[in-house]
């Protein structure tokens, strides 16, 4: 059910934008659009099918940890 909704909404987005992008002959736009759409589609499918996706904030936390620790010690 949820997969169905995701695929339908993704194809709906494609249906709205792709004909227009082909009409104005924006090749780069079309590529970027398709990549983003595909990325979004896969991400959604993975997430809603219970695949664990690493939290990007954990990565940011890891990156800023030295800085924040230093800062909070300073303050």
């Amino acid at each position: 059910m949820i997969n169905c909704i995701i695929v339908i909404s993704a194809s709906l987005i494609g249906y709205i934008e792709i004909p227009h992008l082909i009409k104005v002959k924006a090749k780069m736009d079309l590529i970027v659009f398709s990549l983003l759409l595909l990325f979004g589609l896969i991400l959604n499918l993975l997430y809603y099918n219970g695949v664990h996706i690493p939290n990007p904030l954990d990565f940011i936390k890891f990156l800023t940890k030295p800085l924040s620790e230093w800062l909070y010690r300073l303050l």
């Binding site: 909704i5 909404s9 709906l12 249906y15 709205i16 227009h20």
Partner: peptide, 16 residues
């Protein structure tokens, strides 16, 4: 184009 967009948005909203 505009009409199509509107229909699409409405379709989006329908399940909501």
């Amino acid at each position: 184009m505009k009409a199509k967009q509107l229909v699409a948005i409405l379709l989006f909203c329908a399940p909501l």
